[in-house]
Simulated scan of single mutants.
Amino acid sequence: MKIKPIGKRVLVEIINLEEKTSTGIILIQNNEEKNYRVGNIISLSNDSEIVEQFKLNDKIVFSKKSGIKISHSSSEKTLLELDEILGVVEE
């Protein structure tokens, strides 16, 4: 199933956050423990505001209660409105 957002929306794939201990052990954190989520934009609408602010593969932060969750295949996706996006992660 392919989803093309319309209006002022983006489709993001959820990223499971991980941290490393001082000895190098990777700890995968449960997203349910945090009040926010991080995801990669995998599809954008053609709205001018969306196109000006975001591009494919931007990593964004949003509230875990926002958006519409879409479960399809092995990855978790969320459809977000423009005003539900809290920020872009700059690395």
Rank of each mutant, 00 (worst) to 15 (best):
Glu81Val: 06
Ile85Val: 12
Gly7Ile: 09
Glu19Thr: 02
Ser48Gln: 04
Ser74Pro: 06
Lys77Thr: 01
Asn16Phe: 00
Val61Lys: 08
Asp58His: 07
Gly7Lys: 12
Lys55Val: 08
Ile41Gly: 05
Glu33Leu: 13
Glu81Cys: 09
Ser45Ala: 04
Lys20Ala: 10
Glu32Asn: 08
Gly39Pro: 07
Ile60Phe: 04
Lys77Pro: 06
Arg37Val: 02
Asp47Pro: 15
Ile50His: 00
Asp83Thr: 01
Asn40Asp: 06
Ser75Thr: 00
Asn46Lys: 14
Glu52Cys: 04
Thr78Gly: 04
Glu84Val: 03
Ile28Met: 11
Glu76Arg: 15
Glu19Cys: 09
Thr23Ser: 07
Asn57Ile: 06
Lys34Gln: 11
Asn46Trp: 12
Leu17Ile: 03
Ile14Phe: 03
Ser63Phe: 08
Asn57His: 09
Gln29Cys: 11
Gly24Met: 09
Leu11Asp: 14
Ser63Ile: 09
Ser75Lys: 08
Asn57Thr: 04
Glu81Tyr: 02
Leu82Arg: 06
Glu84Gln: 04
Val61His: 07
Ser74Leu: 01
Lys55Asn: 02
Glu18His: 03
Leu17Phe: 12
Leu44Met: 15
Tyr36Arg: 11
Leu27His: 00
Asn40Ile: 00
Ile15Gln: 14
Asn16Val: 03
Ser66Glu: 03
Val10Ala: 03
Glu33Asn: 15
Ile50Trp: 00
Ile14Gln: 02
Leu17Tyr: 07
Ser48Tyr: 08
Glu76Tyr: 15
Glu33Pro: 13
Glu18Ala: 10
Asn35Lys: 13
Lys59Tyr: 10
Asp83Ala: 00
Glu32Cys: 07
Lys65Phe: 11
Gly24Leu: 08
Val51Arg: 15
Glu32Thr: 12
Thr23Pro: 11
Glu76Cys: 15
Ile14Trp: 02
Glu13Asp: 03
Ile26Gln: 01
Phe54Ala: 05
Thr21Met: 10
Asp47Ile: 11
Arg9Asp: 10
Ser48Asn: 05
Glu32Met: 02
Lys69Asp: 11
Gly67Lys: 01
Ser71Ala: 10
Ile15Asp: 15
Val10Ile: 05
Ser45Thr: 04
Gln29Val: 01
Leu79Phe: 00
Lys59Arg: 14
Ile85Cys: 13
Glu49Ala: 12
Glu13Gln: 10
Thr23Phe: 03
Asp58Ser: 06
Lys20Pro: 11
Ile50Cys: 08
Leu17Asp: 15
Ile70Trp: 07
Ile41Leu: 02
His72Ser: 14
His72Phe: 11
Gly24Cys: 02
Ile70Glu: 06
